[in-house]
Design a protein around this nucleic acid. Structure first.
Length: 279
DNA sequence: CCAGACGTTGTT
DNA sequence: GTCTGG
DNA sequence: CCAGACGTTGTT
DNA sequence: GTCTGG
């Protein structure tokens, strides 16, 4: 794919590449997700191109009472059960793999409440020399859905007498390809066995820790996208278009640039504002 | 003992 | 709730 | 993660 | 600069 190749070129040349997980997408039909991750629920999930912290995300849990894997919609940003307010959750969107077994906010969740957080890709922002930022989307080459290693927690809202379920995405060190440009990345559980092992209540700490490693770089592609993704209220398919200035960047680095101009996908006028239901 | 934190990323 | 710092 | 706010008193 | 909201 031309766009994918271009994305890789720019990525490799860039010096200040940053990668972690504060925004992602999930657009696959619930039937595909259910088949892939082994859950029976088939709720009406609207495609989401711009999932942000504090919003509802699709997770898979292993429920000892029901047996098997089950889909749930949880708020992104883990609120520890002892928190006085839900506000802390906005800053608990990631949990470091190296310390989650010890940190008071995460260790009980690591031991008892692990989950898969479903995605088709995630975004990251590259800081340019002029201080502006270029968003990238990172997806599998085959565009298949995948699972972040996640933790979840249950929090009792005192005033409302309600229970809020929240979650956090585990992060780890970057792989060899990404290490020169950035040092962190989200943990992705590749393959059914890794997913099952993460969810299995009887998995030991050592086995779990072994899953918390960087993804296999061959399977992944990064490519620049429109900065419209910056605004959380933009949530349409147009966010995956190439940015307007990619042509300029490419010709800066490769004046011959025989690849032709990577214009925006034609006929994609606006982001469809599929506001309405989250899922 | 009580009080207060409990988290991540990035940047300098 | 549980650990750390004072 | 980025965008956007960042404050008070009093009045209805 | 730093915090909150999405």
């Amino acid at each position: 794919m031309a766009a994918g190749v271009k994305g890789l070129r720019i990525t490799a040349v860039s010096l200040a590449f940053r990668l972690m997980c504060g925004r992602f997408l999930l657009t696959s039909p619930v039937e595909s997700l259910g088949r892939l991750f082994g859950f029976p629920e088939r709720p009406n999930l609207a495609p989401r191109y711009n999932i942000a912290p504090t919003q509802s995300v699709a997770v898979v849990r292993s429920d000892p009472e029901l047996a098997g894997h089950h889909l749930a919609l949880l708020r992104w940003g883990l609120v520890p059960f002892w928190a006085k307010s839900r506000d802390i959750g906005a800053r608990m969107i990631n949990a470091r793999a190296e310390t989650l077994a010890e940190k008071p906010a995460f260790r009980a969740a690591f031991r008892y409440r692990r989950c898969l957080i479903l995605a088709d890709g995630f975004y990251e922002w590259q800081k340019r020399e002029d201080g502006t930022k270029q968003p990238y989307v990172i997806q599998r080459r085959d565009l298949a859905p995948f699972a972040f290693a996640g933790l979840w927690e249950s929090w009792e809202e005192k005033e409302q007498a309600a229970t809020l379920e929240t979650c956090s995405i585990v992060t780890t060190g970057a792989n060899d390809v990404l290490r020169p440009v950035h040092h962190r990345m989200p943990v992705i559980l590749e393959g059914q066995e890794a997913c099952d092992q993460w969810l299995r209540p009887t998995s030991g700490s050592a086995d779990l820790q072994q899953l918390l490693r960087p993804a296999a770089e061959e399977a992944w592609v990064a490519r620049p996208v429109s900065s419209r993704v910056n605004k959380v209220t933009n949530d349409g398919a147009g966010l995956l278009d190439a940015p307007e200035d990619v042509a300029a960047e490419v010709s800066d680095e490769d004046p011959d640039g025989g690849e032709g101009s990577p214009h925006k996908a034609i006929g994609r006028s606006t982001d469809d504002p599929d506001q309405g239901s989250l899922f």
